[in-house]
């Protein structure tokens, strides 16, 4: 039973959903923002730290939500490292394409996020995967000098 949902709930997703590595607020951070999905009640807050060059050096989050949204936030926290505001926006758009269409042939740097591609088969769950990214971009946009 449920063999056909293994694309959605890959081991990585189940593991990250259960035991996220980055699910904590950062003691020192440069930006933070919340995201919520009023239709389903999922909530997330993201904290971002930059290095001197303006690239993301650390991301933490707190979330109440499903396995998909927590795993997505956790993988995002790793994928975002080293990105500037500009490249992060591109990465976020590429990720949105990945989880909507299942593929992003001309995209680079999505390897970490690839396990979430199965979400595309579940249209009602796409918003679970993208919610943390909306919060991350809100944090970046709200930050002076990084908008």
């Amino acid at each position: 039973m449920f063999e056909d949902v293994r694309d959605l709930y890959q081991e990585v997703i189940l593991d990250r959903g259960r035991h996220p590595r980055h699910a904590q607020r950062l003691d020192a951070f440069d930006a933070t923002a919340k995201g919520d999905n009023p239709m389903c009640g999922d909530r997330v807050q993201v904290w971002v730290k930059h290095n001197d060059q303006g690239a993301v050096s650390d991301v933490g989050f707190e979330a109440r939500g499903c396995a998909i949204s927590i795993a997505s936030a956790d993988l995002m926290a790793e994928a975002a490292i080293g990105h500037t505001a500009t490249t992060l926006r591109k990465l976020s758009a590429d990720f949105a394409q990945l989880v909507t269409s299942g593929d992003c042939p001309d995209c680079a740097g999505l390897e970490t996020l690839q396990p979430l591609s199965g979400v595309s088969e579940f249209p009602s769950r796409v918003k679970c995967a993208t919610l943390p990214w909306h919060a991350l971009l809100s944090a970046i946009d709200a930050e002076p000098g990084h908008g």
Partner: peptide
């Protein structure tokens, strides 16, 4: 325990069962 309502609903849906999940 260990399963969010949305994840429950998605799995039940795969078995043809329609329930509501959320607030």
């Amino acid at each position: 325990e260990g399963a969010h309502a949305h994840d429950i609903a998605t799995l039940l849906d795969r078995a043809g069962i329609a329930v509501r999940a959320g607030h």
